[in-house]
Nucleic acid binder design. Structure first.
Lengths: 313, 313
DNA sequence: TATTTTAATTAGCATTTCTTATGATGGTTT
DNA sequence: AAACCATCATAAGAAATGCTAATTAAAATA
């Protein structure tokens, strides 16, 4: 049994197809066929059920794949140990970011980061929290930036900053006259929300829920981007909430529409999250350092009230 | 990087000698030299400091060895998964047993076990608890039978039975007249003890300690075997305590010297212990089944008072 | 039935791993 | 200090392993 064989098994299990898996492994299809057969012979057990189309894992196969993933990941850690020892920060690093953080945070830290750590090949992807969690677990992401806490046992979190919510209230809205908004003033029914799947949506719902026991699930207007929310709001379709960083690059004439909360403002906790196995921890720490450093200058709130980003049951 | 290379690194790290390690791996010494060099080249780091005699691990080397042990052990688990799936119970199994359990328990279950599981190649070794713990941790033992609880995070325990202590009191002893002994009657100073390193000794000391706050560390007579303890006691050198199973094959004329404790009698907890990684769990469970089944007929005590086998501080 | 998709097989080449033989180094003995 | 021993590295060839290209086989699709 070799690590390579286990790696091939993982590839076939993932793509359910020898040919595609072979491409991903940069070898030909017969190589995979032969190596996997060899492993199956050695263990004297079928890992794949080749009678099914597309190919399927057998029952033992599933267990073997889980263990193989373990072994392959642990083997990567040896290079990790060496890098750590040498203080080397480099290599490919796959980072996920949720949509409501991506456009504001990424431009703030990216330049600084690649300047400070030129050997790191960052591959950044915009993903929902749900996608992020599953990809961190299966090793397709090294880390991600998301709203926390997630309360997932296999994922660790390091808080980067707290980002307060800010009200965006159009002129015709009944709350427009109020200088400082209180959480109790919020009414979920005339709040513009992001579409389902965004954790910022869930955060806003949680914030309102605190003061209302039930909510009508009849939101008429939902959007995929915060930019659109602002425009819809300008059209007089309701108020909305914005993450603080989004308010920094808002147009001058719209700034009047920003209304801040009474202290302590509700806020989301933004963290860098990663698998509990702590692979590539040097790079994660490097990211944390850069982002925390940059944010210190941008957000200066003392006390906040953290709103959970996950739907309550 | 291959599992074989990691295995070679482990062998050299253990034996601190390429030649000896090569023998254990059933390859020649140049094979080890080359493969380990290759790995070192690939990682671009020295794992061994070859200038030292005997050879030593570098700082990174130590970390790599720890991780390599992980990976190699986890790779064994794949065969384990297959065996488990097939219900196959076989292969080499290294079992440690502490000296005060070995002579009485082993004859009781060995025949039954090898009859029921003929494909298991049992390798049994008599070892102290301390040796057992370190060998389970480094993978040289698959499991062991010892007195518990040990309170060691990386070792799991499954209780096999509780074995009461029985007093062995020679005719001239002041307690000889008493039919039922109470723990409070015991005096550490005229108790014959096993020599240092036996956990049964520590158990007896703990039992006495409960009723005396300090003990004089001036035991005159100490022996390496329970058989000898009995003989010394017969010579009038003091009383002693025996584990219950040892009293079953005592000579007829010496049976009068056995005095039982008031209920609940002090007892030691005997468990099968194994690494938390649960490798070869089928065989461990098979052992547990056989031993528990056999013991059910031999020990029938309701309530006991468990005495810790580890020295108190 | 013909076509397409996909995995297995075969044969040959390239690479890797291993062994035997030998060299180098450092410490120990006489 | 010379000879010796222990121990690891190196070199060269043999065995094995892993890979590719070309082909076959089998099943799904049209």
């Amino acid at each position: 049994m070799t690590i390579t064989q286990l790696y091939y098994v993982l590839a076939v299990a993932e793509h359910q197809n020898f040919t595609k898996a072979a491409e991903k492994c940069f070898v030909t299809q017969p190589t995979l066929s032969m190596q996997i057969q060899k492993l199956e012979d050695q263990l004297d057990v079928q890992i794949f059920d080749r009678s099914k189309k597309p190919i399927e894992l057998t029952e033992v196969g599933k267990k073997i794949v889980t263990q193989a993933r373990n072994i392959v990941n642990e083997s990567y850690r040896i290079q990790d140990i060496v890098d750590q020892q040498k203080g080397f920060i480099g290599g490919e690093f796959k980072l996920g970011i949720i949509p409501t953080i991506m456009p504001t945070l990424l431009p703030m830290f990216l330049k600084t980061f690649i300047k400070r750590h030129p050997k790191v090949k960052l591959k950044i992807e915009e993903l929902t929290t749900e996608e992020i969690i599953s990809r961190i677990k299966d090793g397709h992401l090294d880390a991600a930036i998301a709203a926390t806490p997630l309360e997932d046992d296999s994922i660790k979190e390091r808080v980067l900053y707290f980002e307060p919510f800010v009200c965006y209230i159009p002129k015709n809205h009944k709350l427009y006259g109020k200088q400082k908004i209180d959480s109790a003033d919020l009414e979920i029914d005339d709040m513009l929300l992001l579409e389902d799947g965004h954790c910022f949506r869930d955060g806003v719902i949680n914030l309102c829920k605190v003061f209302k026991n039930h909510i009508d699930d009849k939101f008429q207007l939902e959007s995929g981007s915060i930019e659109t929310l602002i425009k819809l709001s300008n059209e007089g379709l309701g108020m909305t909430l914005l993450p603080y960083l989004h308010t920094l690059d808002i147009r001058e004439k719209e700034k009047d529409n920003l209304h801040y909360f009474n202290e302590p403002p509700p806020a989301r906790e933004v963290s860098i999250i990663y698998h509990k196995s702590e692979l590539k921890m040097q790079i994660i720490e490097a990211l944390q350092d850069v982002i925390s450093g940059i944010i210190r200058g941008a957000i200066a709130f003392q006390d906040v009230k953290i709103i959970s980003p996950v739907p309550k049951k």
